[in-house]
Design a protein around this nucleic acid. Structure first.
Lengths: 215, 215
DNA sequence: ACCTGAACACCGTTCAAGT
DNA sequence: ACCTGAACACCGTTCAAGT
């Protein structure tokens, strides 16, 4: 009765539409009703290509990560390459916050294979000894995904007015009793000015410095 | 008509009941219907003490983190104390996986104040220089919460049969083309045997080693 | 094989009414 | 002030029926 799609549906078309909805309105906006409306189709058509909502989210996440890894330029210097790959993941998750949430829910996605391979290979190039290699790779990947996810959640929370929100938190921190909370009290100033991306990179550098001591 | 509670309700009672439901059945199990049943009350009674479901989850999370920090014994040696606090958080999030998910959704919780204060103070005791102090604290807290959250998601996924699942993933990894995926191919053996808790601690140690180079 | 859309079994949240 | 529970506006998912 209603206008029907001329072209056939495919999992890829559905996944791209889902990603667009997620980017526009966040996780809450992705409903099968919104998806059928956007694709001018019915529920069954979608379920014919996708097992369920969880499968859809997973596929959309894989697509984003796969693109990041494909786009990441290869550099010679392993330390610099590690920073570049890390930043690429950080920025992608910042741009698509739902990816961060999804990865912290389902950490064993095929897309992460590429991430492990790249980062592991670069650690090998850094001469990390065999017995520490897998711990180092696991820790670094976890750091990158964990911090990027946290940052993305943050960014979403602060989307409306970042500086006002951080200003509030900083004011609360500054108002704390300096006897009881000396560190947080001092940190209040830094909080207002700090750059998430720079702090992320600083963390990567600390990590790489720690890895360098493993020889 | 139905049996009514003899004692009055309070936010604390509600939060504890919510935590118990979350521990028993995971995030999907926490519904207002399950909560009213457990507390022998109505929806309005709960909404009288709690703003909404998000508020409830946040309060339950704060309660768990607050207890970890209260229980964590103070040690003299700062490096050892940092490991102890980190492990305490890791174990708590492992025991209450929903805490990890919640913290990655709302990272600015009051309970984290204690975490930052403790970890920041210990970094000061380690003579981390002023200008690197806040980056180091932020990175370490993020690492701990990020990895613990990932691990908890994992644990939930693997709840039914951990070794079978890891065995499957390891088999898939081992079956990969060693030319295309040399690192992951090699990592397959390690994956089957690795201990999440030990790998987490290894990451903390790498971090602390990196921080030691900041002098 | 692929698609449609009414229907089902859930949700969180509200609110008039009770004590 | 505190509590009750029917009702509302949503969900994801199913499935008989269509092409």
């Amino acid at each position: 009765m209603a206008k029907r799609r001329a072209d056939g549906l495919s999992k890829e078309v559905i996944v791209q539409a889902a990603a667009a909805i997620l980017d526009d309105g966040g996780e809450a906006a992705l409903t099968f009703r919104a998806l059928t409306a956007r694709l001018s189709t019915g529920y069954g058509a979608i379920y014919h290509h996708v097992a369920n909502k969880s499968d859809l989210l997973a596929a959309a996440t894989d697509a984003v990560i796969a693109r990041v890894m494909a786009d990441a330029v290869v550099e010679d210097e392993p330390r610099e390459a590690l920073r570049t790959v890390s930043l690429g993941l950080f920025d992608a998750i910042d741009a698509h916050p739902w990816v961060g949430a999804q990865l912290s829910r389902e950490p064993w996605r095929p897309a992460l294979l590429e991430v492990y391979e790249r980062i592991g290979g670069l650690l090998v190039a850094l001469d990390v000894p065999e017995q520490a290699l897998f711990d180092a790779a696991g820790a670094l990947v976890n750091y990158v995904l964990g911090v990027a996810g946290q940052n993305a959640a943050n960014a979403r929370l602060l989307a409306t007015d970042r500086s006002a929100f951080l200003g509030d938190v900083a004011a609360q921190w500054a108002a704390l009793d300096p006897e009881r909370y000396p560190f947080v009290h001092r940190a209040a100033t830094q909080l207002r000015e700090h750059d998430d991306r720079e702090q992320f990179l600083a963390g990567v550098d600390i990590f790489l410095a720690g890895i360098a001591t493993l020889h």
